[in-house]
Simulated scan of single mutants.
Amino acid sequence: MKRQGNNQNQPPRIVVIGGGTGLPVILKALHKKNADVTAIVTVADDGGSSGVIRDYINVVPPGDIRNVLVALSDMPQIYKKIFQYRFVSTDQFFSGHAIGNLIIAALSEMNDNGIFYAVQELSKMMNVEGHVFPASNEPLVLNARFSDGTVIAGESEISAAAKTIERAWVSGMNENVPHAVNEVISAIMEADQIVLGPGSLFTSILPNLMISNLGKAVCKTKAEVIYICNIMTQKGETERFSDADHVRVLNKHMGKKFIDTVLVNTETVPKKYMDYQKNGEYLYQVKHDFNGLRKEGCRVISNNFLRLQNHGVFHNGPQVVDELLRLTGRPLSWFDDECN
């Protein structure tokens, strides 16, 4: 039986797993509510500033971790802006790097115990409310096998291949078997609710679940496992996917139907709204297949979760979080009253 709250007088323990730009959207909205939040963040990113830093000093890619820290931080806004500041292209030595990425990389070098514990120190410095846990204490490599039998390593290379992905997995350094530290596993097993996404299916969500002990914990936990389905399909990853296809891929990789509830957006993206030059990785709106979702054994919650901004398509964080909080079994007024 799935758990619906450890104690109705205590804040629910919500673990959000993912990466990319979708994770901070949900965390920012959760941060404003009375919930005990833990973010488990992918460490397989190899693009942009994170990729460059990773290549030079062999550290866990810091970009996703940086954005999550800011989303849950209570430090003054000016400090957040400094932490997020990205050097302009004319600064050749620092070009494209965010100050926060450099700080995380420095702390990981200073801490002999690895990136996980460096992030815990930084969380204290940034007055983070909740917990930010890297999925692994070492950088991981995402691998994919495509329908034509070819295999490619590296998140950026996989996305650029523009082929149908059949299987994804992660590998560690020196052929080590990737694993999550005990704190990550404990957070999952003790949670009241596990939230997957929103985020890229193959490059933000599955890299976490493919860490053996982490994936097993998600399948064994008594917490309700909720998947926030993407609104748009992604080039090189989920082309022509329906919402049921997303869930089917997740269940197939885990070897069981482990997702209890799926949140799907039902609002139509206006024609010609998307700026595809700016958001070239997104293709079409995800199609709905409610019969397919039922076959995957999950409950479906559909609503208008759409937020349109700057000719891009995003999840409406507060609207999604309201649904998540309802699923804890408490009225929404409980969270507002507790915050006052």
Results as ranks from 00 to 15, higher is better:
residue 1 M to W: 07
residue 5 G to E: 00
residue 7 N to V: 01
residue 8 Q to Y: 13
residue 10 Q to L: 14
residue 14 I to S: 03
residue 18 G to Y: 02
residue 19 G to N: 14
residue 25 V to N: 11
residue 26 I to R: 06
residue 27 L to T: 09
residue 27 L to I: 09
residue 29 A to F: 11
residue 29 A to R: 12
residue 31 H to P: 07
residue 34 N to L: 10
residue 37 V to T: 11
residue 41 V to K: 01
residue 46 D to H: 14
residue 46 D to W: 10
residue 48 G to R: 07
residue 51 G to I: 08
residue 52 V to T: 14
residue 56 Y to I: 15
residue 59 V to H: 14
residue 62 P to E: 06
residue 65 I to M: 11
residue 66 R to M: 06
residue 71 A to L: 12
residue 72 L to K: 04
residue 74 D to R: 12
residue 74 D to M: 13
residue 74 D to P: 03
residue 76 P to G: 04
residue 77 Q to M: 15
residue 79 Y to I: 13
residue 80 K to N: 08
residue 84 Q to P: 02
residue 88 V to Q: 14
residue 90 T to S: 11
residue 90 T to K: 15
residue 94 F to K: 14
residue 95 S to T: 12
residue 99 I to N: 08
residue 100 G to A: 03
residue 104 I to K: 09
residue 105 A to I: 04
residue 106 A to N: 03
residue 107 L to M: 13
residue 113 N to C: 12
residue 114 G to W: 09
residue 117 Y to S: 14
residue 120 Q to N: 08
residue 120 Q to F: 03
residue 122 L to V: 11
residue 123 S to I: 11
residue 128 V to P: 07
residue 132 V to N: 07
residue 132 V to I: 12
residue 135 A to Q: 13
residue 137 N to E: 11
residue 139 P to C: 02
residue 139 P to W: 01
residue 143 N to C: 03
residue 144 A to K: 02
residue 144 A to G: 01
residue 145 R to L: 07
residue 148 D to Y: 00
residue 149 G to K: 05
residue 150 T to N: 09
residue 151 V to A: 13
residue 151 V to Y: 06
residue 157 E to C: 09
residue 160 A to D: 06
residue 162 A to G: 03
residue 162 A to Q: 15
residue 163 K to D: 04
residue 164 T to Y: 12
residue 165 I to Y: 10
residue 169 W to T: 04
residue 169 W to G: 02
residue 170 V to N: 10
residue 170 V to K: 06
residue 174 N to Y: 15
residue 176 N to L: 03
residue 180 A to G: 15
residue 185 I to Y: 12
residue 186 S to I: 10
residue 190 E to S: 05
residue 191 A to F: 13
residue 199 G to D: 00
residue 199 G to Y: 00
residue 203 T to L: 04
residue 204 S to Y: 07
residue 205 I to T: 02
residue 206 L to N: 05
residue 208 N to F: 05
residue 216 K to H: 10
residue 218 V to T: 11
residue 223 A to S: 07
residue 229 C to G: 10
residue 231 I to V: 06
residue 232 M to W: 10
residue 242 S to M: 01
residue 247 V to H: 07
residue 248 R to I: 02
residue 248 R to G: 01
residue 249 V to F: 01
residue 255 G to Q: 10
residue 257 K to P: 04
residue 259 I to P: 08
residue 261 T to F: 00
residue 263 L to S: 06
residue 264 V to D: 10
residue 268 T to R: 14
residue 271 K to D: 14
residue 272 K to P: 01
residue 274 M to E: 08
residue 275 D to G: 00
residue 276 Y to P: 02
residue 282 Y to M: 14
residue 283 L to V: 15
residue 283 L to E: 13
residue 285 Q to H: 09
residue 287 K to T: 15
residue 289 D to P: 07
residue 293 L to V: 08
residue 297 G to Y: 09
residue 301 I to R: 15
residue 302 S to T: 04
residue 303 N to M: 05
residue 303 N to G: 11
residue 311 H to V: 02
residue 315 H to C: 05
residue 317 G to Y: 09
residue 319 Q to P: 01
residue 324 L to A: 03
residue 325 L to K: 05
residue 327 L to D: 10
residue 331 P to F: 10
residue 333 S to D: 12
residue 334 W to K: 06
residue 334 W to M: 00
residue 336 D to E: 15
residue 337 D to T: 13
residue 338 E to K: 14
